[in-house]
């Protein structure tokens, strides 16, 4: 690797990170605005037109607030937890392809790294993400935080299993763990009009993935680790200022990752109608990808505005007695069909 290539790769990482952080900041605005309109309110309107500068104001507020550390915490772990949360959340973006392979000077523009084990990488990073929450809950040395941390570790272990099993169906259809290969496999259309997206043969897998992803990102109706009505703020009760902000950012970054993953695995990634001059042809896939991701972010907010929170035992029973069997059944049926087709 020449120094120029290293520089280029670094620039790419910085640009993608900046875009991602902007998306995360505006996901908060998007959610507040959408939620407000669904509840016949206005949401943020004061800062900028339609409250568009609200994320900036929030960031300034979070950065300048006093950073309190309660006296009875375990300092090292207390400090480590928000970093762990945010780093694991951002790390997942290293393998997400945003568009078709576009090489400029030997480097792919729309993806940081095309790993052979892309899907496994995301699973492993997200499985490490639970430590941020669990350790925050434990090190805060407060009953509400501890309960939040305990709930989150049990919840994430249970639903990780469901996520992993629901993805295997897609992997069987593709025969590869690389996210790029999975998307390429969904190009074209059945009978000329129905897109060959994985959601059609893998509908059960998709439902399972979607539900488990919502639980894995601790969003309503599965946000038991921070259930405001019973646990104050759950695992981040004792955090203030930017440390709280990091948990917040991690949560929204995880939402964006889950949306990207749903798009890539089940909704054909960047595939969509491509037409017009060359520059448009290069940009349209990016647009399709963003729109699909936006749809899933919308779905997150929609579900939050619609459904009440589960009870904890319901959550566990649902995960183990419904989602895992559903994913296993999907796996068996998919492998059977593939085996028959191959033989």
């Amino acid at each position: 690797m020449s120094p120029l290539m290293v520089l280029f790769a670094l620039a790419k990482i910085v640009v993608i990170l900046l875009v991602l952080l902007t998306v995360v900041a505006y996901a908060v605005w998007f959610e507040r605005k959408l939620l407000a309109h669904m509840q016949c309110r206005w949401g943020p309107t004061r800062v900028g037109p339609h409250g568009l500068l609200q994320p900036l104001a929030d960031a300034i507020k979070l950065l300048t607030k006093e950073d309190l550390t309660p006296s009875e915490v375990f300092p090292l772990v207390y400090l480590l937890a928000p970093f762990l949360s945010l780093v694991t959340a951002l790390l997942a973006f290293a393998v997400i392809p945003f568009g078709p392979e576009t090489r400029v000077g030997g480097m792919d523009l729309f993806q940081i790294a095309d790993l052979d084990i892309g899907v496994l990488f995301i699973l492993s990073v997200s499985s490490m993400g639970v430590y941020g929450i669990a350790l925050a809950g434990w090190s805060s040395n407060s009953k509400y935080s501890l309960l939040g941390g305990l709930r989150s570790s049990a919840q994430m272990i249970s639903y990780e299993l469901a996520i992993g099993l629901s993805i295997i169906g897609v992997l069987l259809l593709t025969g590869s763990l690389s996210l790029r290969a999975i998307v390429e496999n969904q190009a074209g259309a059945y009978w000329g009009f129905l897109p060959r997206w994985n959601i059609i043969p893998q509908f059960a897998g998709f439902v399972c993935f979607l539900v488990a992803a919502i639980a894995e990102t601790n969003r309503l109706p599965f946000d038991l680790p921070e259930a405001e009505t019973e646990l104050v703020a759950g695992y981040h009760t004792e955090y203030s200022s930017m440390k709280f902000g990091m948990f917040f950012m991690a949560e929204y970054a995880n939402m964006v990752t889950a949306s990207c993953l749903a798009t890539l695995l089940f909704f054909g990634g960047w595939h969509g109608p491509v037409f017009g001059p060359a520059i448009l042809q290069a940009l349209l896939p990016l647009l399709w990808f963003s729109l699909k991701v936006l749809f899933f972010l919308f779905l997150y907010v929609w579900i939050r505005a619609t459904l009440p929170r589960f009870r904890y035992d319901q959550l566990m029973a649902f995960g183990w007695k419904f989602l895992v069997p559903l994913a296993l059944g999907n796996l068996v049926v998919t492998s059977l069909v593939l085996a028959i087709r191959w033989s």
Binding site: L120, S127, Y131, L135, G137, S153, A154, M156
Partner: peptide, 27 residues
């Protein structure tokens, strides 16, 4: 690569989470 990912998912991500969970639960 596969072994590395499996190491993280199974050991660091699942088994150790259970360890931490039990330690937290028993305080």
């Amino acid at each position: 690569e596969f072994i590395a990912a499996a190491q993280i998912i199974v050991y660091a991500g699942a088994i150790m989470v259970l360890f931490v969970f039990v330690i937290m639960l028993l305080n």
